[in-house]
Amino acid sequence: MTEPAVVITGLKKSFGPLEVLKDIDLTVAPGEVVCIIGPSGSGKSTMLRCVNLLEEPTGGKIVVNGVEMTDPDVDIDRARTKIGMVFQGFNLFAHLSVINNLTVAQRKVLKRGEKEAEEVARHNLERVGLSEKANAMPAQLSGGQQQRVAIARALSMSPEVMLFDEPTSALDPELVGDVLGVMRQLADEGMTMLVVTHEMQFAREVADKVLFMDGGYVVEQGPAAEVIGNPQHDRTKSFLARVLNPTHQDPTD
């Protein structure tokens, strides 16, 4: 059996007195797509941000591609180059053109030459269908385009794992499809992906595994068809009922 891409054991995270993650275990195999769903405040974004240590866990262990992220002596900057991250708010570098957004970390962190960095960048812009926007500034792009550039920027570092933190939540509804399309294509190419999302359709069709989180715990996990199609726990059922049919009234409410 190959080594898992991500192993999370006993992950805990508190913000002051507020315990956001109580005891999370998760194993992700290489090439696996895991969608994390749950109500807001359930800790799903915090968990994702713990994977590349944007949030420092209070307890537990996280291993990504054999590197223990939670080891105090880990070279965190080096480890992060192998973990791409896409944010809800895109976070493109506002002062750099699209092409420079894609090359800056390659050159300054990976020490790739100018020519190589640009080749990699152009290749990845093509993957997200935005080759013609190479010289545009982020502010000139639509939200959907910005998010696709953000994906291309993460891909330009040749990551082994990609983290998506509600990548379509800040988008106009008609732009969501383009971004999901790129993510679906990425999944088909075999990228290991952890996706925090409210897009149930995407989770159902693309995810190998779905995680339902609530109150700092993983309430339920399993194949997408089971967790979304045939949830076992009441919390999962009522959450899905509300998400899939917003006008639905929970009888227990």
Binding site: N52, M85, F87
Partner: peptide, 11 residues
């Protein structure tokens, strides 16, 4: 978010 993006790229 700008700082988080930079740090997530390994800067």
């Amino acid at each position: 978010g700008q700082i988080e993006a930079a740090r997530s790229l390994g800067m």
